[in-house]
Nucleic acid binder design. Structure first.
Lengths: 97, 97
DNA sequence: TTGACAGTTCAACAGATGTAGAAATCTTGA
DNA sequence: TCAAGATTTCTACATCTGTTGAACTGTCAA
């Protein structure tokens, strides 16, 4: 993890809407066959407008905290749990030493 | 952990200056006899002005991520590692389920 | 090819945030 | 009591952030 990168990850997760996005995607992003969730469904579930959701998804995707996959005309999003857990785990380890 | 509280903790840590405060305090805030660090020394170590440091310490103290103790005319700060690790641990647990 | 759907990008804006200088507060040592 | 030190609070300001409506892009179905 680069210097300054951890603050970026924590900051990205430290915003209510983005944290909710990760929380709703998490259980749908693991196991043998992750299913993910379409952008529109995330927006509906969270009660935010499409542009607002897209703004946050872009931020999360830039930091690779989510990944997207097209399915027809929908864009399916998945949480990158491996990266998130690695970042948090590294930080926890640093604090515990 | 209350709803919305986790985002607050992550957000507080997701700012370079505040994250550095926690990082510099962490090793000085544990063990049998935590020593902590005076506000002025933190400011000097981080290269930020006293008002700026105070602004961030207030934010961290409000969320109980740091605690203070007076020693003469200095205010010694300690990271509340138990709380930070509990919050991160709870979140990690939620993502891993 | 075209109409509708899904999502993003653009433009604009209010409000929040981070910072530093100046002033105020609190504590101690003489 | 008083001067100096340590830190906070006040004030001001530039920048960043989150949100929205409007416009745009890409995809599919008929």
């Amino acid at each position: 993890m680069q210097a300054g990168e951890l603050a970026g990850v924590l900051g990205a997760l430290g915003q209510e809407t983005r944290l909710q996005i990760i929380r709703i995607l998490a259980p749908l992003s693991k196991g043998k066959a992750p299913v993910g969730l379409a952008a529109g469904q995330i927006a509906a579930a969270l009660g935010v407008s499409p542009p607002t959701l897209s703004f946050h998804l872009k931020d999360l995707a830039l930091r690779k905290l989510v990944v997207q996959k097209r399915r027809g005309r929908e864009l399916i999003y998945f949480a990158n749990l491996a990266l998130i857990l690695a970042a948090l785990g590294e930080f926890v380890g640093e604090l515990e030493i």
